[in-house]
Design a protein around this nucleic acid. Structure first.
Lengths: 217, 217
DNA sequence: AAAGAATGCGACTAATTATTCGCGTTTGTC
DNA sequence: GACAAACGCGAATAATTAGTCGCATTCTTT
């Protein structure tokens, strides 16, 4: 076990090599699929390399052909999710800022709907996201993404209301992110109808959260 | 490592023996203190038995005199926290239900303040609570407590508005708990002033969440 | 079809860590 | 101060798992 080594080198999490032949890119897919299925089956616990290999019908050795370590597999699964947040929020900052209360509300609603879609589209990934949060090695990486997302939420708030202080914007940003995340995780574990009800709940809460600071009362 | 054994027997988590002599009850305290400090130092990662023993100035053997396994130590730390929630909510159900809008709001506020106090009083325990959430073995136990707390939040909602449907009450209960928890964890990691601001934020969100269902608009 | 590159394999290594057990030491009791 | 019970110790055990390496197989190219 060269555990300590990989910890020291601050983890290369990039794929180890690009697949050159067709069979091997199928192998990469099989590994990712297996990791996803196992993570979903086991709740929060991250699957072992052996379990992933067996589930994919491969040997451990093959797994390490394409991934430098176990963490890289989970991270690869999560990457699309992790990166779509910044994209979506950034897009909502590009539009011209609202000029009256009705438009304010509309902007909140749009951001709300866009972020909600990310959750719906990545519903099957949620166990992976939860597993990453619970994994001591991967947590810091997620935290970095979170920082970014918070900063973007804050930037959005200041886009909507340029007079908003940095400190307040960043506090509200954290809460928007965390409240949205917590509630939507609950929603995705229930049926679609309940998810939609919870979405309404979240929207009310978001509005209540930001209203005093965006003069929406 | 009799790991699988302890997993099979579905974990006896009770203290293994009561200290009979004075020195040993001090030892138990030292173990708990060490576990708390280490958990705080290491963020979410649960400390190893060896680390706990060393930090407490003891040998592993001594740790196992009083705790059947590692999990029991963390659970012992968290026990007061885990049990104070049900107590506090239950107490808020015992009072006569509100009869007008102003009293409704007052009741929300009281529950809000009481639950906030639990967080403030147990601020140092929060890393342990987070570690428990991230630990595959302890998570189920916390989930049981959570079920209980959700049921009590739901009961409180129906106490305040007896006409509220079970399903709605339980959905709102989950969200009250999760939103409160997520935001307060954020708050406790910041300074006291920010914590208070976040408390205001949470209160607004709680009110926005339940208002449509308690005729508070 | 032959060579060489890419891929696949899995026994093996080694790190980590939970838990036990038998023995020496301390404490309370008479 | 003698005896038993309680306590404390830590080397040893054993389970789990990440990651490696050299050999075997399959593919691509000519």
């Amino acid at each position: 076990m060269k555990r300590s080594l990989s910890r020291e080198t601050r983890m290369a999490l990039e794929p180890r090599k690009q697949p050159r032949q067709e069979r091997s890119s199928k192998v990469v897919d099989r590994i990712l699929d297996a990791a996803l299925i196992l993570t979903r089956e086991q709740g929060t616990k991250t699957p072992t390399t052996l379990a992933i290999a067996r589930r994919a019908g491969l040997s451990v050795g093959s797994v390490y052909q394409y991934f430098p370590n176990k963490e890289a597999i989970l991270l690869d699964l999560a990457r699309r999710w992790l990166s779509s947040f910044p994209e979506v929020i950034a897009r909502r900052i590009k539009v011209p800022p609202p000029i009256n209360r009705d438009e304010f509300r509309q902007e909140v609603r749009k951001l709300f709907i866009d972020t909600s879609r990310i959750y719906l589209e990545n519903a099957t990934l949620m166990p992976v996201i939860e597993a990453i949060s619970g994994n001591a090695d991967l947590r810091p990486i997620q935290d970095e993404y979170d920082e970014q997302i918070i900063a973007l939420y804050a930037a959005w708030l200041q886009h909507v209301n340029p007079a908003l202080e940095d400190k307040i914007a960043s506090r509200l940003g954290v809460l928007m992110m965390d409240v949205g995340h917590a509630c939507r995780l609950v929603g995705l574990k229930r049926d679609r109808k309940t998810y939609d009800l919870i979405e309404d709940d979240v929207e009310r809460m978001w509005l209540a959260l930001v209203s005093p600071y965006l003069n929406l009362d």
